[in-house]
C-alpha cells in the first residue's frame, strides 16, 4: 500500500458516498445517469467475485463490500425508490456500444484465459468507459448540479491517483500491470475535459454548463 493508492481509494469512496447522499438527501436523481451506475455495479460485481475465494487483507475485503453495497443501493435508489426523478430522456447512451467491445477485448487481451481473470479484465476495461453515459448525459442537458460535479471530480481523481500508484509500485516493487495502466490512462483522459471545466468554473463558484 502507498499514499497514492490509499488516497485514491479514499477519493473513490468519497465519490460513491457523495453520490449516494446526494440522491438520498435531495430525494432526487436528476442529472444522474442510471446507465453509468449500472455499469459501475457491474464493474464491482465482476471484479470482486474473489471476495469469496481469496483473502488479501481486512481493508481490501471491507472496501469491496462497501463499494458493492453502495453501488447497488445507488442503482436501487435511481430505478426504484426515486425513479420518478430519473431523467431517462437524457440518459440515452447506447451502453451496448461499450459492452460488446469490452467483452471482446477482455476475451482477446488478458493475462490468462481463465474465468476469474477474464472477468477481472472485463471489469478493468468496463470501468475505463463506464462514466461515458454520465458525461454524455451532461453534454445533452448542458449542465450539471454542483454536487454532481464534486462526485465526478473525486471519481476522476481516484484513477488519476492510481496512475501515480502504479508508477510508485513499478519503481519500488517492480510491479507492473499493462492492462490496468492502459485502461487507467484511458479512464483518466476521458475526464480531462471535465477536469478543465471543474477547475475553471466550479472551483470559481460558477455553475458547470456546456458548451463551455
Amino acid at each position: 500500500m502507498n499514499i497514492f493508492r490509499l488516497t485514491g481509494d479514499l477519493s473513490h469512496l468519497a465519490a460513491i458516498i457523495i453520490l449516494l447522499l446526494k440522491i438520498w438527501k435531495t430525494r432526487s436523481c436528476a442529472g444522474i445517469s442510471g446507465k453509468s451506475q449500472i455499469l459501475f455495479a457491474l464493474v464491482f460485481t465482476t471484479r470482486y467475485l474473489d471476495l469469496f475465494s481469496s483473502f488479501i487483507s481486512l481493508y481490501n475485503t471491507v472496501m469491496k463490500v462497501i463499494y458493492i453495497m453502495c453501488a447497488y443501493a445507488t442503482v436501487y435508489l435511481i430505478y426504484g425508490k426515486f425513479k420518478a426523478t430519473y431523467d431517462g430522456n437524457h440518459d440515452t447512451f447506447r451502453v451496448e456500444f461499450l459492452l460488446i467491445p469490452v467483452v471482446l477485448l477482455a476475451v482477446l487481451i488478458n493475462h490468462a484465459f481463465a474465468p476469474m481473470e477474464i472477468l477481472w479484465t472485463f471489469s478493468i476495461y468496463l470501468e475505463s468507459v463506464a462514466i461515458l453515459p454520465q458525461l454524455f448525459m451532461i453534454s445533452k442537458t448542458g449542465e450539471a448540479e454542483t454536487i454532481t460535479t464534486h462526485y465526478l471530480f473525486f471519481l476522476g481523481l481516484y484513477r488519476t491517483l492510481y496512475l501515480f500508484n502504479w508508477i510508485w509500485r513499478f519503481y519500488f516493487e517492480g510491479f507492473f500491470d499493462l492492462i490496468a495502466v492502459v485502461a487507467g490512462l484511458v479512464q483518466t483522459i476521458l475526464y480531462c475535459d471535465f477536469f478543465y471545466l471543474y477547475i475553471t468554473k466550479v472551483l470559481k463558484g460558477k455553475k458547470l454548463s456546456l458548451p463551455a
Binding site: Y162, N165, F175, D177, I179
Partner: peptide, 10 residues
C-alpha cells in the same frame, strides 16, 4: 506482470 490468481488492488 501482475501476480496471477489474485489482484491485490481494489
Amino acid at each position: 506482470s501482475a501476480e496471477l490468481g489474485h489482484h491485490d488492488e481494489l
